[in-house]
Computed example of a mutant assay.
Amino acid sequence: MTMNERVAPLLYIFAGLFGFAGVALAAAAAHGGGDAHLVSSASAMCLAHAPALLALAIGIDKLRTAWVAGVLLAIGTLLFAGDLTMARYAGSGLFPMAAPTGGFAMMFGWLAVAVGAFIRKRA
């Protein structure tokens, strides 16, 4: 089983979960009051990265760096959105620097997408 075959199903799963969480968090932000900006930011990251993960899963055989980009985006979104959501509902985040770590992982995930444009697939 290739790396693409192992990672693609995970990207589909996280795309679906992030889409679900993004909509739920948007509703919580709209109706929750308090620190709604935390939940709103978490929602935005989930809703931005769900379709990106879906696209990477669909195109995993066309973009050489798709699996790396997808893993970085998924982990980054989990850390960033998870930290903000925990801060809102539990009173403290996941761990110190979780959101910035997630943010950097997402940025490097997007960079991996861009780098993939310059790396040709083998025939």
Results as ranks from 00 to 15, higher is better:
22 G>L: 06
61 D>G: 15
85 T>M: 00
54 L>D: 02
82 G>T: 01
32 G>F: 07
112 A>H: 05
30 A>S: 15
1 M>W: 08
1 M>N: 12
50 A>N: 04
85 T>S: 11
55 A>G: 12
79 L>M: 12
65 T>Q: 11
42 A>N: 01
68 V>F: 10
77 T>S: 05
86 M>I: 00
82 G>W: 00
16 G>L: 05
30 A>L: 11
56 L>F: 01
40 S>E: 15
15 A>I: 03
14 F>L: 14
90 A>E: 06
50 A>K: 02
17 L>A: 13
121 K>I: 09
10 L>F: 15
19 G>L: 06
24 A>K: 12
61 D>K: 15
57 A>V: 08
98 A>H: 03
5 E>Q: 15
15 A>P: 08
103 G>S: 09
42 A>Q: 00
46 C>G: 09
104 F>T: 15
119 I>K: 11
87 A>Q: 14
73 L>G: 10
73 L>K: 10
17 L>M: 13
106 M>V: 12
23 V>R: 00
51 P>N: 00
52 A>W: 00
99 A>V: 06
80 F>R: 11
63 L>G: 01
50 A>Y: 01
113 V>L: 10
14 F>S: 14
60 I>Q: 10
107 M>T: 14
90 A>H: 09
88 R>A: 15
79 L>N: 02
100 P>S: 08
7 V>H: 04
79 L>G: 02
96 P>G: 00
83 D>Q: 08
24 A>T: 15
58 I>E: 09
14 F>M: 13
57 A>M: 05
57 A>S: 05
122 R>T: 14
52 A>M: 11
92 S>L: 06
85 T>E: 04
70 G>W: 03
106 M>Y: 03
37 H>P: 00
98 A>N: 05
25 L>Y: 09
70 G>N: 09
83 D>P: 06
117 A>V: 05
53 L>Y: 00
45 M>F: 15
69 A>Q: 10
60 I>H: 13
94 L>K: 02
53 L>N: 04
91 G>Q: 05
111 L>T: 08
41 S>R: 14
91 G>W: 07
84 L>Q: 05
29 A>F: 02
65 T>S: 14
39 V>M: 04
54 L>C: 12
98 A>R: 07
37 H>A: 11
39 V>P: 06
92 S>Q: 13
114 A>C: 13
112 A>F: 08
108 F>P: 03
89 Y>I: 10
73 L>F: 08
3 M>Y: 06
123 A>V: 14
96 P>R: 05
88 R>N: 13
25 L>S: 07
43 S>E: 06
10 L>Q: 13
68 V>C: 09
52 A>H: 00
101 T>P: 00
25 L>W: 15
18 F>T: 12
57 A>Y: 02
75 I>Q: 11
7 V>C: 03
82 G>Y: 01
81 A>I: 01
30 A>W: 08
56 L>N: 07
27 A>K: 07
100 P>A: 11
84 L>P: 01
21 A>E: 09
15 A>M: 07
100 P>W: 09
39 V>R: 10
65 T>F: 06
29 A>N: 05
114 A>W: 11
13 I>P: 02
110 W>N: 01
52 A>D: 02
74 A>Y: 02
61 D>L: 12
115 V>S: 02
20 F>T: 15
